[in-house]
């Protein structure tokens, strides 16, 4: 069997084990935190009988292991239960909210790589010169302030004082939405051939995605710089310089590729972490995404929705990790060839 396929199967196998572990953990935690979900869901005016009925329906009177058994049984049918908050199946809710978050995170991840890595290369190439210092200051600023602070600042600057971008939402209300195929507005608009919606969706996503990506940009820049500076000390870079390779080719190719390998893992983790960090940015920009949904269901102790949301986000995290591993295998010949033998 192809070695890459073998590795992929192995990684998917371990990921499934991790997911089962996560499900047990979050299942228990959701039930251990104080407060009666049935009482919160039905409100202060509900009668004891009504509450008892709901508790019965949610299997809340059984012990926790039996409850987990019910959960796994439902899950094997692709059923995550009914959300007490929206009164719809949790899977429907997730299908509605997840694409918005994914779209936001993918844009943010793109910004992180497209700005962070070049800034790191520049900083390393001009080490200890003004370019390096500027990147350092920028990186410290972006890393030290949390993303929601940047969200508010960016919103004030570029949506309020300088009304270049919209303040909130995914799209202008008066625009007709394209057919929901992928749930990604930009992609759906392109499939639909509706260019106005496409531009409008991009226009809406730029500011929140940028706010979300800023700390990632800073981290990616610092990381790339550190790894590049290390690589510049390697004999093969001295050799490249002694042989007259152009400084630009060294920076963007011969020193960059070896430096990318250690950076990539962390950038991948950062990218996955944005899925969780997105909720504050989503809250500021009224972005109808899964992270915001997750916060709301936690506050309402909506058990099924909490477990479902966390499971989906963990699954995304694992998928991103597998993709990063594949990329590293592709870039690093040492790993690629070792596995091929």
């Amino acid at each position: 069997m192809n070695s890459v396929v073998k590795m992929l199967l192995k990684r998917i196998g371990t990921s499934l084990v991790v997911l089962i572990g996560v499900s047990m953990l979050i299942f228990t935690i959701a039930r251990v935190i104080p407060g009666d979900p049935a009482r919160i869901a039905l409100g202060p005016n509900a009668s004891i009988e009504q509450i008892d009925k709901l508790r019965e329906r949610l299997h809340l009177n059984d012990n926790i292991i039996t409850q987990y058994g019910y959960f796994i049984k439902d899950l094997s049918n692709g059923n995550l239960g009914i959300s007490l908050y929206t009164n719809r199946p949790v899977t429907t809710d997730i299908a509605q909210f997840l694409p918005a978050t994914l779209e936001l995170v993918i844009f943010a991840g793109f910004f992180m790589v497209a700005f962070g890595i070049p800034l790191g290369i520049i900083a390393a190439k001009y080490k200890d010169k003004w370019q390096d210092h500027s990147v350092r200051i920028l990186a410290l600023l972006t890393v030290s302030a949390p993303s929601f602070v940047w969200a508010v600042i960016l919103m004030l600057l570029f949506a309020f004082f300088l009304p270049l971008f919209p303040v909130a939402g995914r799209i202008d209300d008066q625009l007709l939405l394209p057919d929901n195929i992928t749930g990604f507005l930009t992609v759906d608009a392109l499939i639909d051939g509706n260019f106005t919606v496409f531009v409008n969706a991009i226009w809406h996503i730029l500011l929140p995605a940028f706010a979300l990506s800023l700390s990632g940009i800073g981290q990616a820049a610092r990381l790339t710089r550190a790894n590049m500076v290390e690589t510049y000390k390697k004999p093969y870079i001295e050799m490249a310089q002694a042989f007259g390779f152009s400084a630009k080719r060294i920076a963007t190719k011969y020193a960059f590729k070896p430096s990318l390998i250690p950076s990539l893992t962390i950038i991948g983790l950062d990218f996955a972490a944005m899925l969780g960090n997105a909720f504050l940015v989503e809250a500021v920009f009224a972005w109808p995404g899964l992270s915001r949904y997750g916060v709301q269901v936690i506050l309402r102790k909506d058990l099924n929705a909490i477990v479902g949301t966390v499971l989906v986000i963990s699954a995304m995290f694992l998928v991103v990790n597998i993709i990063v591993d594949l990329l590293i295998t592709y870039i690093n010949p040492r790993i690629r060839l070792a596995k091929g033998q």
């Binding site: 004999p235 050799m239 490249a240 310089q241 002694a242 010949p333 040492r334």
Partner: peptide
């Protein structure tokens, strides 16, 4: 000076294996 390197003047290093880029 850069234009001389590798063409008019070139250099051989101590450890050949670490003087060659491992990713190309």
């Amino acid at each position: 000076k850069h234009s001389l390197r590798g063409k008019e003047i070139s250099m051989i290093f101590q450890d050949p294996t670490s003087s060659l880029n491992p990713t190309f």
